[in-house]
């Protein structure tokens, strides 16, 4: 049994014919060809696959494509605007917020939500806000720095 799924991905509406078991992350990667959404685990722990679904950060490995029917999905590829990098992307670059880059798309998408909820997020707020994201490379230090710097909290 297959299902029709309509999704608006990074502003572009598309229809897909999918098996119900297809995960959103696989739809994005294999059907839409957006491989920026990485898959780092199979137990929903790592957050590498985080995308925005109707504006909220979700782990796309834990959403069925059929559940996302009719939703707007923003992936890392759709974050930058016509005027260049999103401030969070820029901040990750400026503050060395990545090493191997594998966790980075998920970190950035989560950061967007953290700052959306609290633009004035402190170091501790960000550390707490990243509880669903794992980075094995950076020790989080510069990720936290990048996110705080992308918010409104004045950095010294």
């Amino acid at each position: 049994m297959r299902h029709r799924v309509c999704l608006t991905v990074n502003g572009k509406a598309e229809e897909f014919d999918v098996e119900p078991r297809l995960l959103l992350c696989h739809l994005l990667r294999a059907y839409v060809g957006l491989t920026g959404t990485n898959i780092g685990c199979d137990t929903s722990q790592c957050g590498s696959c985080t995308v925005l679904m109707d504006g909220k950060a979700v782990k796309s490995c834990t959403v069925l494509a059929v559940q996302a029917d009719g939703c707007e999905v923003t992936t890392i590829e759709g974050l930058a605007g016509a005027d260049g990098l999103h401030p969070v992307q820029q901040s990750f670059w400026d503050n060395h917020g990545l090493q191997c880059g594998f966790c980075t798309p998920g970190m950035i998408m989560t950061a967007v939500e953290i700052l959306e909820r609290n633009p004035d997020a402190s170091d501790a707020d960000v550390r707490h806000g990243l509880e669903g994201n794992i980075c094995r490379c950076t020790g989080y230090e510069n990720i936290v720095k990048s996110i705080v710097a992308a918010g409104t909290r004045a950095t010294s």
Binding site: R29, L34, G36, T37, N38, L98
Partner: peptide, 19 residues
């Protein structure tokens, strides 16, 4: 020096084997 490899990673253009 800021990393020259970063633009591709922060925009989801990393070239990993799984891609």
């Amino acid at each position: 020096v800021k990393r020259v490899e970063d633009p591709r990673f922060i925009q989801g253009k990393g070239r990993y084997v799984a891609n």
